[in-house]
Design a protein around this nucleic acid. Structure first.
Lengths: 142, 142
DNA sequence: GACACTCTACTACAGCGGTCGTAGAGTGGC
DNA sequence: GCCACTCTACGACCGCTGTAGTAGAGTGTC
């Protein structure tokens, strides 16, 4: 158990990762061109972030095409989101109450959402998970 | 309308703010001594963070006692939490789905929580908010 | 084999955040 | 009025992030 924290991604990194999760495996060039024009940084900016993501273990090199390196995600979007959410809950002292309360007040959560979630929860309670962690494609390769 | 974004607080800043929210008005010294021993940084570290919080508008000076400055929160804990949550949702592309899904899977959300939230939601729907923003004690004093 | 083009590798830099030290000003006690 | 103590004011440093430029290596085409 213990740490297995995964990778913490910043907003810009997440932007890049989103492209990879969409494209699968891709070159820096492809990713850069896939970014929405409004927030499309210079090629080398994307390149730098991609390299840092590789160092962090969020991307991995898979092959070369011409002289271009092709990368693919080494973590799932879900895992990345999990990390973000866990960090947030940590900041909120581990309580989900303020979170839920805010979601409701801001109208970001509808009754429908709730109902769906609720039914999932009930299903889960009758059929609890095994380990607790639920690792899948986390990437623990050093 | 428009921005009204409030203040973005980091983990360390939040730690300090927690002390202020607990203590009300306090000096740097009081805050530092109130921090749990494990994560109690040097006095000047707390001081620096407090000053930065004042610049950000999260704290304000209220008086002096001896030669010590007394600060108090200029934003509510709720507002700070709101900001954190909004930022997260933004990172999740505005969708609360992954958030809810994760909360359930991680067991951080119980059926009880859900039920409570649900009843609040229903109450709200029959009695919608007035302005939309719902500002309270946000602190817009220059 | 030379050229144009692309990609990599490296470097740079500014801003923020976390951390702290030091010098000097202010204050209270005697 | 002097001293010890406390607090402020300021500066410093490092790591991370966002952003980008430049030099040079690699590649495909003639």
């Amino acid at each position: 158990m213990i740490l297995r924290k995964g990778v913490r991604l910043t907003k810009a990194e997440l932007e890049i990762m989103n492209a990879f999760w969409e494209l699968g495996a891709a070159s820096v060039r492809e990713v850069q061109e896939n970014l929405p024009a409004r927030k499309r940084p210079a090629y080398t900016t994307v390149q730098t972030v991609v390299y840092r993501l590789e160092e962090k273990g969020a991307l991995r090199k898979v092959k070369r095409v011409g002289n271009a390196q092709i990368f693919e995600p080494a973590i799932t979007q879900k895992a990345a989101h999990r990390r973000l959410i866990d960090d947030l809950i940590d900041l909120l002292d581990g309580s989900t109450r303020p979170l839920m309360a805010h979601l409701i007040e801001s109208g970001k959560l509808s009754l429908e959402d709730l109902r769906e979630v609720e039914s999932r929860l009930m299903k889960q309670e009758s059929e609890p998970p095994e380990g607790g962690a639920g690792a899948s494609a986390e990437g623990k390769a050093g």
